[in-house]
Design a protein around this nucleic acid. Structure first.
Lengths: 223, 223
DNA sequence: TCACAATCGTCGGCTGGACGACAGAAATAG
DNA sequence: CTATTTCTGTCGTCCAGCCGACGATTGTGA
């Protein structure tokens, strides 16, 4: 998901497991959590930098029952606890955590690590700007279409009757990602089926029957 | 403006002008622009890091006549051109610019600079998350009240009849900052006057007559 | 100083989309 | 396997706030 707050890549994990970058790995401590565990609340008092080792996390903001998913984090992704976001485990997960300043000191000694780290931070900021842009400038029909279009580009599989897409998310989950209500997203998916663009096969499974029409619907939200 | 995309401080300027950090200053090139000049368009082809030396810039996103101000940048603030934002000069401005990787190399040699740089990036990301939160979770009346409340905390001046506040922005400018239309912000200001909370003295000048009521109106948007 | 541009307050119409509700279907847990 | 929980599609009501329009006021530049 290109518009999400995450750095894209396993670079960070590969780098810290190199022998010459041992100082960084030594600064990090493993923590494991079970599925559904709420790892961090907003303004967590420990000011940590964390790297996901295995598993999957969801970072989101919430207020009065309403939620906005900021990102789905996987292995190699980095995040900090000094923010107003919740972090929950979507599956059993292991992270590598370190107090911020200790992390900085270690990172400062390894240029090989520092550059991808900065690039990761840059990616996260780009993702935040993308969320802002979408929420402010684009209506929800564009945002939903863009969501599916981008998912299809990333993980769609061609088949005889169209492009199969295993999203692995419920309609409610998708709604929290695109910043809308479940009911609205549901009816938009229904409309796309009526328009011959996409068909819901089962929970989390879709068939995109007209990729070009989906792209046009998503414009200019997805480009 | 606490919720804006800017790092708060002159640290970066002070640091790069120290003799021992000459390598960083040598990497930066001065560029000057007149008031109203559009410095950078979205996806500017030069991938630059810039630090404001003097003057004032506005960074904003725009689409089809609609704009959202992301931040007001002043001396010591840092930004990059690799983004989907426009950058315009609000007054005559001088910036120090450098290609990203060259900047990184120089910064990597000076730990004294690197830490405040990372903290600046952290501040910018915090600001982005704050914008997301406000746009998504709070109605416009809260956002407007929060805007004035925070401005008052920063630069309000006590007087006999209340707190004088020189914002220096038109209603239209404020609307672009809080993410709304001029008409809506105007009518909200009018309502606050009717409710005895704040009074508009002149363009960009306000008198806050009930700071506590303003704070309550702004909750939970401003905390 | 004057002409013009920018700013502004106000009104009313319109719309995007949230959301409660409900019945049915699918998945999960014991 | 069964009971329970989660998910879902659909409908209809409601409302936050956008936006065109217009006349008045203020600020700027020559």
């Amino acid at each position: 998901m290109g518009s999400r707050l995450r750095s894209s890549g396993r670079n960070l994990l590969e780098i810290i497991y190199k022998e010459e970058n041992k100082v960084i790995l030594d600064a990090l401590h493993e923590r494991s959590y079970r599925k559904r565990h709420l790892l961090f609340m907003p303004y967590h008092k420990e000011d940590l930098v964390c790297i996901v080792k295995t598993g999957k996390l969801r970072m989101y903001m919430g207020l009065e029952g309403k939620e906005l998913s900021l990102s789905m984090l996987g292995p190699g992704d980095i995040f900090s606890t000094h923010s107003r976001a919740y972090v929950e485990a979507l599956e059993d997960t292991t992270i590598l955590a370190c107090p911020v300043f200790k992390f900085f000191k270690a990172a400062m000694e390894r240029q090989e690590f520092m550059l991808p780290l900065l690039m990761s931070l840059g990616d996260i900021l780009t993702g935040a700007l993308s969320i802002i842009e979408r929420l402010y400038f684009h209506d929800i029909d564009k945002r939903v279409a863009a969501f599916f279009y981008e998912e299809a580009l990333l993980r769609g599989e061609n088949s005889t009757d169209g492009m199969r897409l295993h999203v692995g998310l419920t309609v409610d989950n998708i709604a929290k990602i695109v910043g809308s209500s479940r009911q609205t997203v549901s009816s938009l998916i229904s409309a796309m089926e009526k328009n011959g663009i996409m068909k819901k096969l089962a929970r989390g499974e879709y068939l995109i029957t007209d990729m070009e029409e989906l792209r046009l619907t998503a414009l200019p939200c997805a480009e």
